[in-house]
Structure formats: C-alpha cells, structure tokens
Design a binder for these strands. Structure first.
Lengths: 168, 168
DNA sequence: AGTGAAATTTATCTAAC
DNA sequence: GTTAGATAAATTTCACT
C-alpha cells in the first residue's frame, strides 16, 4: 500500500522557476510567468493548476502589516511543558490551534517543547495574554518571552535551486 | 513635522473583513469579497488598491510546501553574538538577508539575540550549513538548534477583531 | 504524455453618475 | 458608494508534435 501522505509531484526546472516567482508575488499573471518560465501562458496555467492540486503550492495569502491593524507587538515564546506525555502535548496543540493571538506554533526538539509567535496590541495586552494563556495552564512548566525588535527577514520563501532540478 | 513612517491608513469594519479573508486566501475574486464585505465588487477593488498602496497589505505570496521542493527539514536556531555592539549586529543582519537558507530572521530581546528559521534538504545538509554559517563566524558566541517536529499552526494570519473597528 | 492557439467565460479596470 | 461598458485575464476546447 502506497503512503499517499508522502506522495509529491515531480517538479522540474520550469516548475521551480514558477514557484520561486510566486513565493515572492503570487499576483503575477500567466503572461508574466510565461516570460519567467519560457513557456506559453496556457502551459503555465496548466502547471499552476497541477501544483495547487498536488499541494506543492499549499496556499495563497495576503500578508497584512501587523502595525496597520493595531498589533505592533510580536513576541516569540518558548514553552516547556510539565511532562512530555502524549495527552498533555495533544491538549496543548489543540489550545494553540484555537487561540487566534498565536500566529504560528511549532512543536520542537531541543531546549523547549514549543515555540510560539504571538501578536499583541501592546505590551500590556501581551502580559494580559500570558496570564490567561500560560499562567492559568497547569500543564506548562515554564515559558520564556522574546520580543521581536527587528524583522530582519520575514519571508516564507524556500530557496529553490532551479539548476539542481532536471529539465522539463 | 509628521512622522510619515508611523502613518497608517484608517481601517474600518469592512476593510477588516476584507483583510481577514485575504489573509487566508488572496485568490478570492472581487465578486466573492463583495459578498463577504456586503459591498459592490468595484468598491471592494478600490479598497484593495488603497490597502495595497497604503502598505496595509504588504505582500501577496504563494506558500510552497517545503517537503514538495526537497527541503523537509526546518529548524529554529537561537543565536547569541559575542558582543552586542551595533557593528556586529548590523553585520550579522546583513548576512541573514543574503543567506537563502534562512527563511526568517528576527532580532529579539531576552535569552538570545537572534532567532532564525532555516530550511534544509536533510540533517546532514543542515549540519553542513551550521559549519559554514555559524562555526566559521567569529561574531557568534553560541547557537542552539531546535528541529521542528510538527507545525501545529503555521499561518501568518493576524487576528482582526472586526467588531472593534468602527463602521464604514 | 505535454504543449500552443483561438474562442468562451470570467474577472478587473475605467469611466460615468 | 453604485452601475455600465471597455479592457484584460483565466478557462475551455481543440489541433499539433
């Protein structure tokens, strides 16, 4: 039986170029992409459809300025749970998913168990959040806050080494 | 003199609804957005133009599956520099920006100086990267690696409390 | 297989009001 | 803010290699 979870489409050099471009700007038209990919606009669209259906492109989103919508404070929080048992971990994962203030949540190896990215309206707002979310949660042993001072690079673009892919 | 850096557009409830939708899917048509916003498609487009020009929407990107393009390993790395002087910090920031393996890089307060998000083809590839990037850099005092085991939530969507915004 | 060209449908932009 | 017409883009169909 095939493990369909592990199934990924075959990506060639042209796909690589299209993906590299769309990671930076997904509002490029098929016409613009056709120049980048050295292909006809129609062929580009067919590939796009395939890449989206095959979950190579997993989403298309607008990036909103946190400041502009009144959430200028972003913090990174590393969280250590009391005990690393499946039940407690799963419960914490669920609470991450249902808490809108948490933009990103990773379960990690190493120093701590989880790393979260949290947006807040102010430091007071963040403090208030920690009281509600962390201090009242008996599963949490400790947490450490890092306030983001500068987003040196805040992209999500994966380096796609086009030359390492095979020809179309 | 006005601090234009701090200037942000005024966002009303309708903008909030549009932004909340586009953060999840920016391929929604003006027609679909017009239903969400209870507005005509043309009015939606005018707002979109304003939101993009005013840098409320700072970008529009496709999210590519790291696995699908051969980079299944993602690590979080916290970096502490030898000394926190402006020159060393700026030099490190520059190297973050020019290193494609680093997807995200934050300058933070607290435990460490920087937190990086790095994609790799394999653990060997990551180890190789650390040798090139960290171990050969005399400005770096120490770094700690956390391998991401589960992306519990890997969105960038900011919670937009529509009800707290004023009417159009 | 996958590609390219023309026709149709659909969305977006540019006026009007 | 809306409606209507022009422009441009995405989809579909079909012929080609």
């Amino acid at each position: 039986m095939v493990n369909w979870e592990e199934f990924v489409l075959h990506i060639d050099r042209i796909d690589g170029r299209i993906l590299a471009a769309l990671q930076l700007d997904n509002r490029l038209t098929s016409d613009q992409l056709s120049e980048i990919a050295h292909l006809s606009p129609t062929a580009v669209q067919r590939r796009l459809k395939r890449l989206r259906a095959g979950r190579v492109i997993v989403g298309d989103v607008s990036i909103v300025s946190p400041k502009a919508v009144g959430r200028p404070i972003t913090t990174l929080v590393s969280v250590t749970l009391e005990r690393e048992c499946a039940q407690i971990i799963d419960r914490f994962k669920r609470s991450i998913r249902t808490t809108p203030e948490i933009m990103t949540g990773y379960y990690v190896t190493g120093e701590t168990d989880f790393v979260l990215v949290i947006t807040s309206k102010s430091m007071d707002d963040y403090e208030d959040f920690t009281r509600r979310f962390f201090l009242e949660n008996p599963d949490i042993k400790c947490f450490k806050t890092m306030v983001i001072m500068d987003r040196v690079k805040s992209g999500f673009a994966i380096p796609i080494e086009v030359d390492e892919l095979e020809d179309a």
